[in-house]
Amino acid sequence: MNLIAILAENIKSNQKNQWYSFLQNEKFLVEKHFDWLSLNINIESKSIIGKGTLNMAGKSYIILLSYSPYHSYRYDRIYIQDSSIEYNNDIHLYWDKSLCLYHPKFDKPLLNTIPLYKMIPWISEWIVFYEQWKKYGVWLGDEIKHSL
């Protein structure tokens, strides 16, 4: 294991050991910038649980999220509550229908996780690209194909 991997593991370990403080900071930053989301820290799951309605171009999207250092692979699980959105690699969804907002290896900053407050604007971008995909059949946003 190289030094960078060791440091990254130490950071993740500290975030797990100090999970409540870590999540309090994340929650504070989101609430400071995004008043349309309602967030709570769930003690049992050691995660932030959130829900909100995002209004764009005359349409409302119900957003559900969970954020925790205890989630495997990535801290975020962000969903759009809409039964018409079906799993499809072309629209950047994971198998559980959570949004694929970034590449978990290539887009993460060195030695760190992506803070939740930085991900929230990416939900709007995902929606714009999704609506364009429905219209044109092509994902027009930057992407790394899931088949890699």
Rank of each mutant, 00 (worst) to 15 (best):
K12I: 10
F22Q: 06
S68A: 14
S84Y: 02
K145F: 05
I80Y: 03
Y20N: 09
K118G: 00
I120N: 09
N17T: 02
Y61M: 11
M56N: 14
S13G: 06
I6Q: 08
D107F: 06
D90C: 03
T53R: 12
K46D: 09
H92C: 04
K32W: 11
I127N: 07
E125V: 05
N42C: 10
Y136P: 01
E9L: 11
L37Y: 08
G58C: 13
Y94I: 04
I63K: 09
M1Q: 01
Y130M: 09
F106D: 05
Y70E: 14
P121C: 09
I49A: 11
G137V: 09
W122I: 08
H33F: 14
S72H: 15
I91H: 06
L39G: 03
I85S: 03
L148Q: 14
Q81D: 15
Y130S: 06
A5C: 14
H146N: 12
L64M: 07
P104R: 12
L111K: 07
L54V: 05
M56P: 11
I144H: 13
W126E: 03
K134C: 10
I114F: 05
W36E: 02
S66G: 06
M119N: 02
L140H: 11
I4C: 01
S45Y: 08
N40L: 12
F34A: 04
S98V: 00
S60T: 12
M56T: 13
D35I: 14
S66R: 15
Y130H: 13
P109I: 12
S66K: 15
Y79S: 10
L29D: 12
Q15S: 10
M56G: 09
Y79R: 09
S60F: 14
D142C: 00
W126R: 04
F22M: 08
I114L: 08
F28Y: 13
F129A: 12
I114M: 11
C100T: 00
R77F: 11
Y70F: 15
L116E: 11
W133P: 07
S83D: 12
H103A: 03
I80D: 04
D35M: 11
K12P: 00
A8C: 00
D96L: 10
S68N: 14
H146R: 08
I91M: 09
L23T: 03
N89C: 05
I120G: 09
E44F: 05
G137W: 15
F28A: 11
L99R: 04
Y61C: 03
L101T: 00
D82A: 09
N42P: 00
I127C: 03
G141W: 02
S98Q: 00
Y87H: 06
H92W: 01
L110N: 02
V30S: 07
A57T: 14
K108A: 07
S13H: 13
L65P: 00
D76W: 09
N55C: 04
S47M: 12
Y102H: 08
S147A: 03
Y61D: 06
Y130G: 04
L54I: 06
L99Y: 07
Y102W: 07
D142N: 00
E125I: 03
W36M: 06
S124Q: 06
